[in-house]
Design a protein around this nucleic acid. Structure first.
Length: 528
RNA sequence: GGGUCGUUAACUCAGUUGGUAGAGUAUCUGCCUUUUAAGCAGAGAGUCGUUGGUUCGAGCCCAACACGACCCA
């Protein structure tokens, strides 16, 4: 009869006789039920009980630090031992214990706060035998507060000598191995909190991400752009070619879509008279997940009245190079083996057709010929959908033959009108639009165009899209009557652009996967 | 969707031709007042991703599945 489902759990055994153990039973039982109870946690509970028996609070909140570790290192990092002795000043620091080296009657340990890490030292004869005994119940991972004076060890390391020691939070779980660190990327993404504790690079990436977004805001604010927030739940998803997530509002009994882009709302604001607007926020696209794609991702979109696509190229060079300079300290950034030169003036500007010919090796007699194009797309391993327009085939050719080769920054402009339903037509050639995409390291980084503000043309282009939708293209645009109505009031001539923040952060932090730059990337549920 | 690789102790990883499961770190016990991947001596710790198959015998061979990574579409 003994099979797996009937397998009896052994009772949880602990060495401690403390009554305080009752306090931990809900945790222990829950962990045991999930087979997640490891001996370290049991031991931590035993230590916690011993502390509670001595009247020590294991989660107090009455310690106040007065100094960050980085400030101590910056101010006193060069001071000699003698100077530190003369200083005779006490500091209070707080943080997580990251290393522990005990010698019986004296202990070196390392404390990490949000600014850095430093060594601390506690000796039995300095703090007293009773306190030292409790102090020795500290584990790596605990959060502690320390008051003490600075000195230098025999090996000349700046160290804080403990005068007062206080446990602030008892940790119940072991941290990953200290030397190799956390290698399992699944755990790094699922338990980002652990990753942030033990992987310095992770912390650096997200600090850089915040700095990048801050610089972007500063840059745009300086130029008179106004940050706004537009709906993320939309009755008609628009502004991009993508499959949306659907949701439902109960009280209104109404179908809603998570937005795929803020574009149509931001342009309504141009109609309303906000002549320069931007939004930095999440978009949601119901597509596959890869090293380049997360279903929710962050975009900058901005719109600029009385400007055109060429003004945007200049602005983009300035903006991205400035961000790189401020965040990376250089405009030549290293990415996955490439040196990418973001210095303004060095960015290549090339038409879409020229890029097909000069970089993709597709001559005009081929890319202007529907059948030849189709053949070449198929040869490149891409599917051709029945009734697909020439512009779309050209775009596929571009994806296959040109995009991967664009390592240095390239503005590719004059995109086919077929695949640019919101862009203004070029004045000399209605088959192309005043639109560019920005590429580097073989990826699209931004998409921009002079905006279509002719309400009649816009209506016709939506109708074209609706036909494609009816023909089965799930990504085609919907008709948005209200947006057309807004254009009928008159939208000033304008240019607008979207910049993928995640990809920009990848570039500037030399990250190979989008999951490295998103704090909590979407993952499958943990247990099947 | 397709291909390749991976899944072994809490962590990082070995595991030979198919023959009783290994190391380091962490943990526990003892010693240790200047270490810094501290050290020395000892101990405990495993549903080898899951299910099935081949076999006298499977961590290893075969199949399916799950999860993950990378590449391709």
């Amino acid at each position: 009869m003994a099979n797996d489902t009937n397998r009896k759990k052994k009772p949880i055994k602990l060495a401690t006789k403390s009554e305080h153990v009752q306090r931990f039973m809900p945790m222990l039982e829950a962990l045991d039920a999930k087979d997640d109870l490891n001996p370290v946690t049991k031991n931590r509970v035993e230590k916690a009980c011993a502390l509670l028996d001595e009247g020590v609070d294991i989660y107090p909140n009455d310690f106040r630090r007065d100094t960050y570790i980085k400030d101590i290192i910056e101010t006193y990092g060069e001071h000699s031992g003698k100077k530190l002795e003369e200083l005779d000043k006490e500091f209070s620091i707080a943080g997580r214990v990251m290393a522990w080296r005990s010698f019986g009657k004296a202990t070196f340990f390392q404390v990490q706060d949000r600014t850095g890490r430093m060594q601390a030292f506690a000796a039995r004869d300095d703090i007293g035998a009773d306190i030292y005994k409790l102090f020795k119940k500290t584990d790596v991972g605990d959060i502690v507060g320390i008051r003490g004076k600075l000195f230098r060890t025999k090996t000349d390391e700046l160290t804080i000598a403990v005068v007062e020691f206080k446990l602030l939070t008892k940790s119940m779980r072991p941290l990953p191995e200290k030397y190799h660190g956390l290698k399992d990327v699944e755990i790094r993404y699922r338990q980002r909190y652990v990753d942030l504790i033990v992987t310095p690079r992770t912390k650096e990436i997200f600090k850089a991400r915040t700095a990048i977004v801050r610089e972007m805001r500063d840059f745009l604010d300086e130029r008179g752009f106004m940050e706004v927030e537009t709906p993320m739940m939309q009755p008609i998803p628009g502004g991009a070619t993508a499959k949306p997530f659907e949701t439902h509002h109960n009280a209104l009994d109404m179908k809603l879509f998570m937005r795929i882009a803020p574009e149509l709302y931001l342009k309504r604001l141009l109609v309303g008279g906000f002549e320069q607007v931007y939004e930095i926020n999440r978009n949601f696209r119901n597509e596959g997940i890869s090293t380049q794609h997360n279903p929710e991702f962050t975009m900058l979109e901005f719109y600029w009245a009385y400007a055109n696509v060429y003004d945007l190229m200049d602005l983009t060079e300035d903006m991205i190079s400035r961000i790189a300079q401020k965040v990376c300290g250089t405009t030549v950034v290293h990415y996955q083996g490439h040196d990418v030169d973001l210095t303004p003036g060095k960015w290549v500007r090339m038409t879409f057709h020229d890029s097909l010919e000069k970089i993709g090796g597709v001559p005009p007699e081929v890319y202007t010929d529907y059948e030849k194009c189709k053949e070449l797309v198929k040869k490149g391993g891409e599917k051709v959908v029945e009734g697909e327009k020439l512009g779309k085939l050209q775009a596929k050719l571009f994806d296959i033959r040109v995009e991967p080769k664009l390592i240095q920054p390239h503005f590719i402009y004059h995109y086919p009108t077929d695949i640019s339903p919101l862009s203004r037509r070029n004045e000399d050639d209605p088959e192309i639009t005043d639109r560019f995409e920005l590429f580097m390291v073989g990826r699209e980084m931004a998409n921009a165009f002079s905006e279509l503000n002719d309400p009649v043309d816009q209506r016709c282009r939506f109708e074209e899209q609706v036909k494609e939708k009816d023909a089965g293209d799930e990504e085609a645009h919907h008709m948005d009557e209200d947006y057309v109505r807004a254009l009928e009031y008159g939208m000033p001539p304008a240019a607008g652009q979207g910049v993928g923040i995640d990809r920009l952060v990848m570039l500037l932090t030399d990250s190979a996967s989008i999951r490295e730059v998103i704090l909590f990337p979407l993952l499958r549920p943990e247990h099947s």
